[in-house]
């Protein structure tokens, strides 16, 4: 395991350096995050002007929900898919494939590097906003914070798997942008990133419940907000872990199948 990490951690380091070197993109994404969060906050302020509780969420909880979603989205956005689809479509994946490395692990360690930089800045932003906009005191007990931290990590891994799996679709189409966009819309709706799942009709919630997306966003927020506690929270962590294992394995199988179809344009 240590040997494995030593071989792959360079991808994390290089991605971080690259991300930091490219300051403009970095600043733009920080500003966009900020704007996105503020737009949501204002929207909810309008809605909460009429009612004090909407679908079981009060103002405080709803803003925290929005902030956690923003943190998760900033931590792992389009980048994994963009890199993957670009590599497949323009053939630059070729040089990765001539290396003695597992492609999926490589992608994961790259995503990790990206996320440490983006997630790090987003975390500062989100904590600042949470402190100014909400009352955090009910949520700051060590047990639920620890559970939440584990849940966030699992959510990150699952988000990676979903993005990676989506990106692999580019092996079968030349419309990379379409695939990425479609995946993003599906994920946003079913994961609860757009709205808490409680806002949707019962049949939709049942459907979302059997799909992996909710485990990447919705479930961690429920742990943080204390809406699911104790044994229920542990069950959620187990479910998240299960989805990570399932999606990681499926992606691996899919890659092994897909890589035989690759044509590598150019050269």
């Amino acid at each position: 395991m240590r040997r494995f990490i030593r071989r792959y951690i360079g991808f994390t380091r290089c991605t971080m350096e690259e991300r930091i070197a490219y300051r403009k993109g970095f600043l733009v994404s920080a500003v966009l995050n900020m704007v996105g969060i503020l737009v949501s906050v204002f929207l909810w302020r309008v809605l909460f002007a009429q009612e004090s509780v909407i679908q079981g969420y009060d103002w405080n909880q709803m803003i925290l929900y929005v902030l956690i979603v923003a943190l998760l989205n900033a931590t792992l956005g389009f980048d994994t898919e963009r890199k993957l689809s670009k590599g497949i479509l323009d053939g630059s994946i070729a040089s990765d494939l001539t290396k003695p490395i597992d492609f999926q692990s490589m992608s994961f360690f790259q995503a990790l590097g990206h996320s440490l930089v983006e997630g790090g800045t987003a975390l500062i932003l989100v904590v600042l906003l949470a402190v100014t906009l909400t009352d955090l005191s009910p949520y700051l007990n060590p047990v639920s914070m620890a559970l939440f931290a584990v849940s966030l990590m699992l959510a990150f891994m699952l988000k990676f798997c979903l993005a990676y799996f989506g990106g692999l679709m580019c092996f079968f189409t030349s419309n990379g942008f379409g695939v990425v966009y479609l995946r993003q819309v599906i994920t946003d709706v079913f994961s609860g990133a757009m709205l808490p799942l409680a806002f949707f009709p019962a049949w939709f919630q049942r459907l979302a419940g059997v799909l992996p997306f909710q485990a990447s966003v919705y479930l961690p927020t429920q742990i943080f907000l204390g809406r699911i506690e104790g044994r229920g929270a542990v069950r959620i962590l187990a479910l998240q872990a299960l989805w990570v294992v399932v999606m990681w394995t499926l992606s691996g199988l899919f890659f092994r199948f897909a890589v035989k179809k690759i044509t590598i344009q150019g050269g």
Binding site: E18, Y22, G91, S92, S95, G266, G267
Partner: peptide
């Protein structure tokens, strides 16, 4: 020859 395996920005 038509591609590079180097990281572009580091």
């Amino acid at each position: 020859g038509q591609r590079t395996q180097l990281w572009w920005d580091i």
